[in-house]
Nucleic acid binder design. Structure first.
Lengths: 340, 340
DNA sequence: TTGAAAGCGCTAACAT
DNA sequence: ATGTTAGCGCTTTCAA
């Protein structure tokens, strides 16, 4: 068994109170006692029992993160990088990270409720915010701390980090139009995701400035995976007049689109240009490499994590809302359209 | 504040003991009382305080998983899928998942020690086992439960799930030789990983059966990322006599290799064939699609998770070691070499 | 500067 | 069938 505070007390001939206070570096313990206690603790390999500590303190020093997993082949590189970002900062602050998995839907909110009420975590990190976000509604209603990666329309007060993807998409629009494209289609995820709304808005806005109207029929809905991108791109390609540029709202779908175009015997970047969003590492290794908008996922994970910890610690936040500037990464998946 | 067991007791006019027992469906509580208590609990939205429960029971109902993160751009799709697999089964059994991040090295073992001794978790899941695996040595030495994804040489008693990648690589070897390849090179990760050893052994063995000797100079070392695969492949291509087939030991490096070959103006599957390992979703969407060996990562995550839970619950295991049969996925990144 | 004692919310041995 | 009581390991009043 691991030694307890009692064992140390016995060894140094002091009370457990004194030991506890020495370990926490309280002012009212003599330096000698502190030294004595610390040495004994070290020698005995003492590590505080977290359960007990936390029960007492009514806090958990733990951050909750509920992975919205969609089916078994859940391998979005976005999440592993984001998780690494959260985890890194959390451990830097001595916080643990409790991860659960739950597909979006009915049960999801129960998972949150359960973790809130059973006192498992001090706060949550929410990812891929949605238009009517039950998670955020719930957490706000019970006044439980959280920080979101992504904005929520109509809830401007919540703490969040997001990339200004409107601007990102405007950059894409400018770039494609400058290359000479006019027939542009888009593969988006469900409009339930707020990021989809922002990105579509940015794209529309950007195109409109050049006198181009993005029509509803040119916005297809995919599921954020390569497969989804592939299938939607195929539909676009098979139209009698296919677009010369396909704007996918994330890299995974863009990769699928590239594959579909090539399977159709067309040339990516010539017959049809493709752009993505995220700049996942793979994006540099598609063929041709993918033009996309960079998002510093790892850093964002860190920021979100840090903000949440400040909040649960009651440290005043410098900024409650952070909107990052995107940057366009031009690669060879996009080029001038072929003149006919 | 969430209601406690005391609040329920007060409400139904029973002792807290009775409430506790009713909630746990003990035999020695009358059905009426059980009903009464349950209803009250439901009404009041009672959820047990996990910290207290667990402190008392000396268990945590929590599984630990320490992500070996290598630097910030940590986006191996392997991990998100594996995590989803672990998480799913864990929650099915009512277990939580505590995730930490720590780069392999010095500090890593402290992270394990800390979580063990502070009583944070009941057991660990270990991934990507290594030859002299400090993590496993430590956990065995303190007799702390764990299950590994991957074998460890010389420790045949540890509980693990692994794919028989020797056979997987033999299938690759057979297949490539049948296509007519004789000049075969390999991009492997550090031989610290036991899976690298198994896969190389399988490849060598498989080739030897066809009278081909895989030489050390034809085994390059990459870092398991696209970038690593790209760079090593470039080295191979620039040799005066480049190989006609590049066998990468994971899909990410294979994707990098494909990119390098194409950037060199060669044709993948004709000039140089490429194979991977894992069959991540992206593998079907490279151009050309990647020939690889399938590994059911999600299921393996589930199995490992389930085994660990059995172990910490002291339920006897059906099988302590599980070795899965691989299957070869033939796609167009591999073909007959061009005759000269 | 230190210690005694209460108690976080829960479970379980023991008593009734 | 139910209640009394002790105690998990820790922190924190309060008193000395």
């Amino acid at each position: 068994m691991s030694p307890s505070i009692r064992d140390i007390a016995k060894k140094v001939g002091k009370s457990i109170t004194t030991v506890s206070r020495a370990l926490h570096d309280y002012d009212d313990v003599s330096p000698e006692t502190k030294e004595l206690v610390r040495k004994a603790a070290e020698e005995m390999g003492y590590i505080a029992n977290r359960q007990a500590q936390l029960l007492r303190q009514k806090s958990t020093d733990t951050i909750g993160f509920i992975l919205p997993t969609f089916g078994p082949r859940f391998s979005d590189p976005f999440f592993s990088e984001f998780l690494a970002g959260i985890g890194n900062k959390a451990s830097a602050y001595g916080y643990d990270l409790l991860v659960s998995t739950c597909p979006p839907g009915e049960k999801e909110i129960h998972t949150y409720q359960y973790e809130v009420q059973s006192n498992r975590v001090d706060g949550f990190i929410i990812v891929r915010t949605r238009v009517e976000d039950e998670r955020i509604k719930y957490l706000t209603s019970v006044n439980f701390p959280f920080v979101a990666f992504g904005r929520v329309p109509g809830m401007d007060d919540i703490p969040f980090v997001d990339e200004n993807s409107e601007i990102g998409m405007q950059m894409i629009a400018d770039y494609l139009v400058d290359l000479g494209h006019t027939k542009i289609a888009c593969i988006a995820p469900s409009m339930n995701y707020t990021f989809a709304i922002h990105r579509i808005a940015g794209l529309k806005e950007g195109l409109k400035l050049h006198g181009i109207n993005l029509q509803e029929k040119d916005i297809l809905t995919g599921d954020l995976t390569e497969k989804g991108g592939y299938e939607r791109a195929m539909e676009l390609i098979q139209r009698k007049m296919h677009p010369t540029a396909i704007v996918a709202l994330n890299d995974l779908m863009a990769i699928g689109a590239i594959s579909a175009i090539q399977d159709s015997g067309l040339i990516v970047g010539k017959d049809i240009s493709v752009t993505g969003f995220d700049n996942i590492p793979s994006a540099a290794y598609t063929h041709p490499p993918l033009t996309t908008v960079h998002q510093p996922i790892f850093q964002i994970g860190g920021m979100v994590s840090e903000m949440l910890i400040q909040i649960v610690k009651n440290v005043p936040l410098e900024k409650k809302q952070i909107l990052l500037k995107p940057s366009l990464i031009k690669r060879q998946s996009s080029g001038a359209p072929i003149k006919k």
